[in-house]
């Protein structure tokens, strides 16, 4: 289970995913990489980064809110 926290609405989801990379996980979640920045342990990661089941990811929204 990958834990994903969404900054935009301050929610957390446990995602049951077999995605091996961040790019595939984002595709499963229906998220456009152009509109977000992803961090793991407070470090920004790129889409080719490998994902493991015990990861906790933070999804930061790029688009301004108003």
């Amino acid at each position: 289970m990958v834990t994903v926290h969404f900054e935009k609405n301050n929610t957390t989801r446990n995602v049951n995913s077999s995605a091996k990379t961040l790019a595939l996980l984002l595709k499963e979640l229906g998220l456009n990489p152009e509109t977000i920045i992803v961090t793991r342990n407070n470090e920004v990661i790129t889409e080719d980064e490998k994902i493991s089941a015990d990861d906790t990811l933070e999804i930061l929204s790029v688009i301004s809110g108003g």
Partner: peptide, 24 residues
């Protein structure tokens, strides 16, 4: 780009809270 600007602000640790305008 918007993504570059957000990343710059993030890496520079600018204190920016994500709040959405209710009228957006």
């Amino acid at each position: 780009t918007e993504k570059e600007t957000r990343l710059y602000a993030l890496l520079k640790k600018f204190d920016v809270s994500f709040t959405e305008c209710p009228n957006a």
